[in-house]
């Protein structure tokens, strides 16, 4: 049970129960769809960007607790940041979970609660789906729906 508590920390369960910024945004300046073909989970991320700063971010969809909480907490952590800062945060988060990206000196704050997911390799994609989708919305990934099975 203790391992599971490490994975399903209270803050994750809370964001799963009450996801923040979960709504459609018709006036979004950009958006993207993400899809995890392994489980069929889908997420749509909306952004309103003004002067290179994320003024508003929201999402619809998501799936399991890890995916939903990660998406919800992502929206909280990127609001008010510049696009460059958001990309840095993506890299830092990705590195924490996979060790693939370059290690960066990024302040992850509350996002550290997802560190436990690293012990569950099949669930890493649940935690990173929203972030890949966000990067796609920012035009940093190829056009078309992003999939956790891309690269």
């Amino acid at each position: 049970m203790s391992d599971l508590k490490q994975l399903y920390q209270e803050i994750i369960l809370d964001h799963n129960r009450n996801p923040r910024n979960c709504y459609a945004m018709p006036e979004a300046s950009c958006s993207a769809d993400g899809h995890n073909p392994l489980c069929g989970d889908t997420v749509k991320v909306y952004l309103r960007i003004e002067d290179g700063i994320v003024r508003e971010i929201s999402f619809e969809g998501a799936g399991c607790a890890i995916c939903t909480a990660s998406t919800s907490m992502m929206t909280e952590s990127v609001k008010g940041k510049t696009v460059e800062e958001v990309i840095e945060l993506f890299e830092g988060f990705h590195h924490m979970l996979t060790g693939i990206a370059e290690e960066q000196d990024v302040e992850l704050g509350k996002l550290r609660v997802f560190e436990g997911v690293r012990e569950y390799p099949v669930r890493v994609k649940c935690a990173t789906l929203a972030w890949h989708t966000l990067r796609s919305a920012l035009g940093e990934e190829a056009d078309g729906p992003v999939s956790t099975e891309d690269s």
Binding site: I66, Y120, C126
Partner: peptide, 13 residues
Amino acid sequence: GIHPHDVGTILDQ
């Protein structure tokens, strides 16, 4: 209210 993936992970434990 509980996604099957979460169920699967916990059952595996």
